[in-house]
């Protein structure tokens, strides 16, 4: 797939990278600013995680080129995400226990 990288195309890529860079910086300051507002615990957790997810997706999609990746990699990652959710089920189990007790 590397052969297809014409100068023009790379130029287009570079422009995307710079846009993403600016967005990441902006979101970093937004999330710090929000944390200074001293919202409720629940609101701040949700907001911070949403912003982190957006930033993470930007990095994964554009820097790691996941936006145009091969099917096989999507498959492997889907599997990982499934088990990751399984792993996150663990604290949920703990919480239910805490409530039940």
């Amino acid at each position: 797939m590397h052969q297809e990288h014409s100068a023009e195309e790379v130029q287009k890529h570079v422009r995307t990278y710079l846009v993403v860079f600016v967005m990441l910086l902006a979101l970093t300051f937004v999330t710090v600013a929000i944390s200074r507002l001293h919202l409720g615990v629940f609101q701040s957790i949700v907001l911070a995680l949403i912003i982190a997810c957006i930033k993470g997706s930007l990095v994964a999609l554009f820097f790691m080129h996941l936006i145009s990746e091969k099917k096989l990699i999507y498959g492997a990652l889907a599997l990982t995400v499934a088990f990751f959710i399984g792993l996150m089920f663990l604290p949920v189990g703990q919480m239910i226990t805490a409530v039940a007790l």
Binding site: T28, T31, V32, I34, S35, V41, S44, I45, A48, L49, I51, A52, K55, G56, V59, A60, F63, M64
Partner: peptide, 21 residues
């Protein structure tokens, strides 16, 4: 690069979780 972006990605989550919440 993929490895390096992943290290960046982890930090993007570490930062709010540890410092801001």
């Amino acid at each position: 690069g993929l490895y390096w972006h992943f290290v960046d990605l982890v930090w993007i989550f570490l930062f709010p979780v540890l410092y801001l919440l």
